[in-house]
Design a protein around this nucleic acid. Structure first.
Lengths: 138, 138
DNA sequence: ATAAATGCAAAGGATTTGCACTAAG
DNA sequence: CTTAGTGCAAATCCTTTGCATTTAT
């Protein structure tokens, strides 16, 4: 299976909890908070502990298997898919997230490099209202 | 004084606490967490309460006098200066922040608009190592 | 006068941690 | 066997809130 391969490649042990976490992330289109993720995980693997989820989010993030974006209350997580790097436009009305292929770092990395700055991470997220929510608020 | 004008323009009452908060923010080059800000504020105005700082950060943010950027642990705040909108490259080594004039929304707003999405806020921050810290780590 | 702002203390919510136990390699 | 991973419960950290009091306008 593919998830198992991902874990092996990163020298991570294959545990039921990890499988459950990655399965949920894989089957989720938009991103999830740790809490939402946990709720889904215990449907698949009841008894899984909350701290296990948190600890794994850290580990998986550190191994580059996930990406994290900041949000109002809690951070949100998403499986990093092969397709490549992208960002999101998140609707503050309904929570829907529209993928955005454009990445500002492409234009900026060189310029920062000239100033001696070495970018290692970045965050770019857009918040607003999607068409439906925008119309509803009129 | 200038801070007082800012408050008046926004229909906010001029209180010693607010003055202290804005004074600290004004005298700070990079941005501060709420906790850091609080530590500075009580040097100027001892006895100022923690919740007062938080409440004012909310108010001032709502009035557009500040901007907020997400960070590892806590959100960071900065006085919004006249010069206009900009972003930052933050060094994970020493915390220094380099202002970045480029704003990705300029290129993206139209494209999102075509999709019906109305952007209201956005976050763009770059993290990495500045020249000094990068060399130190070699 | 009166509505906004503050202080205080307590609550809330997200995340982390210590420790003993379990299980993957 | 050995180390990473887990469960549990408690702790921590950041932030918010209710309420009585004070203060700016």
């Amino acid at each position: 299976m593919e998830i198992e391969e991902m874990l092996k490649q990163k020298d991570l042990k294959i545990t039921p909890q990890r499988m459950a976490i990655l399965t949920v992330l894989k089957n989720t289109r938009s991103f999830l908070s740790a809490q939402e993720l946990f709720q889904e995980v215990i449907k698949i693997l009841p008894g899984t502990n909350f701290s296990t989820v948190y600890r794994n989010l850290d580990v998986l993030l550190g191994k580059g298997l996930l990406c994290r974006v900041p949000s109002d209350t809690a951070d949100l997580y998403e499986l990093r898919r092969e397709e490549g790097h992208h960002h999101h436009a998140v609707c503050k009305g309904c929570g829907a997230s529209i993928p955005v292929d454009f990445c500002p770092m492409e234009s900026l990395a060189k310029e920062l490099g000239r100033k001696g700055f070495l970018p290692t991470e970045h965050c770019f997220e857009v918040y607003g209202l999607c068409e439906r929510c925008r119309d509803g608020k009129k």
